[in-house]
Structure formats: structure tokens, C-alpha cells
């Protein structure tokens, strides 16, 4: 009996998925807590370019001389002071904790070579797209649209149309 009770506790508090609405409300509140306390808003993709630049600079490529790195040179980049870098680490570990507590962690291998191509192409397109539009679905949308910025609305419409095209490509070539 006690065994059963323990499982119910596990099921209810650690495993059972929350509704999308619960997720929505909590995400909004956490995102607001972040900006209220730190004065800076949540973003995700900004650090990725800096990390890439850092790796290149370690390989001996002087990225700081590139025009694109002029405003934010790698030489003065400090990951521990970069808010999105820290929240990104948090997202990975938070999701890991959630699956471990639900006892659902498992390394999910690639199923086919198509998944590899999808990952390569998708990653490249997201990286390029995010830098051109100055943000991703968080920085140019989730903390831009609610901040009464027009580019958040434009970005939303654009992602929507991109996603429609992406769906067609996915069904046709990556399934």
C-alpha cells in the first residue's frame, strides 16, 4: 500500500505533464521576474554567435577584426556576465532535472541519416535567421512583442510563414 502511495506521489508531483496553460503562465511570470530583478530581458541566441567566435579565436582566427564582431568583441566577452548564456545553461539543466525526477531520462539516438541532415540544415537556418532578425523566438518575440515593439509582431508573422514552408519541406524531405 505504501509502495502504491509513493508511486502516486511520483506520478502526480514529478511526472504528470502540466497543461500548456500552466506552462504559459509560469513562463510569463519567470520571464517578468527576470526583467524586474536584473533589468535585462530573457534571450537565447545572442551568446551562440559569441561562443562560436570564441572557439574560432582559440583556433587562431581573428574574428574580432570582422565587422560583425566590432560591437561585441570576443576579447571582452564574459560568459558569467552574459544573462542569456546563464539562462541557456539553466534550460538544459532544468530540463535534465525534470526528466530525471520523472525517471524518463534516456539518450535518444538519431533514427536515420535524414535526422542528421535535418539537424544540420535546421541549426544553420536558425542561427543565420536569428542573427539577421536580431533575435530568436524568445529575444525577438517572447520579450519583444510584449514590450510593445513592432518587430516582435513582424517576427511572429514571419516565423509563422517560415514554419508553414518548413512543414512542407519536412514532410517531403525529412520523413
Amino acid at each position: 500500500m505504501s509502495e502504491k502511495k509513493k508511486y502516486q506521489f511520483h506520478e502526480l508531483y514529478l511526472k504528470k505533464e502540466w497543461s500548456y496553460q500552466t506552462g504559459a503562465v509560469l513562463l510569463a511570470l519567470f520571464s517578468l521576474a527576470l526583467v524586474i530583478v536584473t533589468g535585462k530581458s530573457w534571450g537565447v541566441t545572442g551568446p551562440l554567435g559569441m561562443w562560436g567566435g570564441w572557439i574560432l579565436s582559440k583556433l587562431g582566427i581573428a574574428v574580432d577584426t570582422w565587422a560583425g564582431f566590432k560591437a561585441t568583441p570576443v576579447a571582452s566577452y564574459d560568459i558569467w556576465k552574459d544573462l542569456p548564456a546563464l539562462t541557456n545553461i539553466g534550460i538544459v539543466v532544468g530540463a535534465l532535472l525534470a526528466v530525471l525526477l520523472a525517471a524518463q531520462f534516456k539518450i535518444k539516438k538519431l533514427k536515420s541519416i535524414k535526422n542528421l541532415w535535418a539537424a544540420i540544415l535546421g541549426g544553420l537556418l536558425m542561427g543565420i535567421g536569428a542573427r539577421i532578425s536580431l533575435g530568436c523566438n524568445i529575444g525577438a518575440f517572447f520579450t519583444a512583442l510584449p514590450a510593445f515593439s513592432l518587430h516582435g509582431w513582424i517576427f511572429w508573422i514571419s516565423i509563422f510563414s517560415g514554419a508553414a514552408v518548413g512543414s512542407k519541406l519536412l514532410v517531403k524531405y525529412f520523413m
Partner: peptide, 13 residues
């Protein structure tokens, strides 16, 4: 659909 990511399982279903 083991090892397949969204939305592939749903579309296949």
C-alpha cells in the same frame, strides 16, 4: 516512432 522528434510521429500517425 522511437527516436523521432516532433512533429514527425504526429504526421506519421
Amino acid at each position: 516512432c522511437l527516436g523521432e522528434a516532433c512533429p514527425v510521429p504526429l504526421v506519421k500517425t
